[in-house]
Amino acid sequence: MSIGRRNFFKVIGVTGASLAFGKTLNAAPKKENDIEFSAILYDSTRCAGCQTCEVTCAEAHGLPAPVDVPKAGVVRKTDEYHRTVVNAIATENGEVYVKRQCMHCNEPACASACLTQALYKTHEGPVIWRERKCMGCRYCMISCPFDSPKCEYDSPNPKIQKCDMCYDRQKEGKLPVCVENCPAEALVFGTRRDLIREAHKRIVENPGQYIDHIYGEHEAGGTGYLYLSGVSFEKLGFNPSIQLKSYPELSKGFLYAVPSVFVLWPAILLGIREATKNNKSNEEGNE
């Protein structure tokens, strides 16, 4: 393909103009956040502990249906066969329920730990696991502050199981199965920004019903699962010492030091070697 001089200037001019005016024409503040993270808001005061989410999740992902039911005093945990579980907890407000699954952090520790990008934060928000990349080192399990990734130890070809916010369904424009089937409307799907707004609205409009805290708004640098509750989150079984900074932040200092060491060390070592060469020539006399 050849392009004439005149045409070339025309293209340049149009491109330049569109670059210059681009910002003003698209007035909406769209720079890097072209896509908002999708998220799920879980309202534990609405949850009835019916386990529909558990059953439909197991069905959708080819996992065995749950056999046990939520019971106060028993902590059920997600594992390689259960991507989500609902726990019952006895509190001063009576029995409350809490659904647990992967939190889909904004800056996930698992994805930053993964050396093959098998655990991956998608642009749409869900944190997913990609089978063809994973080598099974389980560093994601070491790093995740919520203990979300689970390993199929009993398989010679183990997978990592965790909630993927039904990423495949989202791409088809469908809701995550748990959200779609929740009869109590305890689960709402939307963009993270909208859901935080909605959560604040609920807190403001029902002052007695909720504690003034959206779990996941700031925890671990912000998560894609947001929780509303009438009792403290510690009572619901959440780690009280969770930090507000993201977890990958913890190893950033080390990783930033690496390039400096890599550049400076060889130079310093070579310098010391040259400086101490006298030792050698004293003994050997040549070279």
Binding site: C114, T116, Q117, R132, K133, M135, G136, C137, Y153
Partner: peptide
């Protein structure tokens, strides 16, 4: 490793988890 046949993923191909400490160690 659970899936040792994938051990070369961080060395070859398009699976560089460059933000990982384990990637550096490997």
């Amino acid at each position: 490793l659970g899936r040792p046949w994938k051990i070369f993923n961080p060395v070859i191909g398009n699976s560089f988890g460059t933000g990982s400490v384990l990637f550096l160690v490997a």
